[in-house]
């Protein structure tokens, strides 16, 4: 079975139409006609992840995020870069092929990425009154943040708000952008959020809300931490129709460490 044949099976088994105009969910490195020996699903096809997949005998990487450091995997202006050349050569020399699974990981019902995140947060049974809203018995931001940091295994975990603020209803965002507070929601948990000059500067908003005692809090998990879990769901799905080769979920892992916190 070739990598291209794996993609054809994914299209057949998605359960909804594959968007053929996607620029994301295509091959980004290596030769798609290569014989697949094993598949690694992951959050990001970092060079380190590709090296580990190779060592484990998994020569096809199915990655939620980019290979060449930008959403379009546009290699214009990168081809002379030493890191680009190293990564590209590594894939070709070692028979590694990288397919991105982004748009269709989200359009699958249920969304693999959201399902994985909610399970990791431990909130599967806490569905609240709206989409991606979760309710639980009242606690404080301090207690909630300590619990989630432990659960998610995040090192560079960041919190905004008063540790004593009440938390009882959270909305959950994945990846980039954390949305805004809908009525009743006192906590937003998400992946990655730009600061300051943006569509809505959530961190400054939460700081100001805390100043007025308005009980708003924000927990920033990191993009990887918020989306990696769901690629395990993608692996489980792939195993239902790829029987010939092993399919493993391999973590690319949180990219950061923080001073004083490992």
């Amino acid at each position: 079975m070739t990598a291209r044949e794996v993609l054809a099976l994914m299209k057949q088994n998605l359960g909804s139409p594959w968007n053929e105009s996607t620029y994301r969910d295509v091959f980004h490195a290596g030769n798609p006609d290569i014989e697949v020996k094993g598949i690694a699903t992951t959050f990001m096809a970092t060079l380190d992840l590709i090296q580990r997949a190779h060592a484990a005998g998994l020569n096809m990487v199915i990655s939620h995020e980019t290979t060449y450091w930008n959403d379009r995997d546009d290699t214009n202006g990168l081809t002379a870069d030493a890191v680009y050349q190293f990564k590209t050569d590594y894939c070709l020399k070692n028979g590694m092929v990288v397919l991105r699974l982004h748009d269709h990981a989200h359009s699958h019902q249920p969304d693999f990425i959201m399902a994985g995140l909610v399970r990791a947060l431990g909130w599967t049974a806490s569905e609240g009154p709206g989409p991606r809203v979760y309710s639980f018995p009242k606690t404080t931001l301090g207690v909630m943040a300590a619990d989630l940091k432990k659960r998610m295994g995040a090192r560079a975990f960041r919190v905004v708000g008063d540790p004593k603020a009440t938390v009882s209803m959270a909305s959950v965002a994945m990846g980039y952008g954390m949305g805004r507070f809908s009525p009743g929601v006192d906590l937003i948990v998400g992946g990655e959020q730009p600061e300051a000059d943006t569509a809505l500067d959530l961190s400054s908003y939460v700081l100001d809300a805390a100043f007025f005692g308005m009980n708003k809090s924000q927990i920033i998990l990191g993009h990887n931490i918020s989306e990696e879990q769901g690629m395990e769901d993608a692996a489980i799905w792939l195993r239902t129709f790829v029987k010939e080769v092993p399919v493993q979920f391999v973590r690319s892992g949180e990219p950061y460490w923080s001073p004083g916190n490992g």
């Binding site: 060079l47 450091w69 890191v83 190293f86 993009h223």
Partner: peptide, 16 residues
């Protein structure tokens, strides 16, 4: 961004 310069720096490290 985590899928841009952060991944680029990770890859530079993995490239030795």
């Amino acid at each position: 961004r985590e899928w841009e310069s952060v991944e680029y720096a990770q890859d530079a490290v993995a490239a030795g």
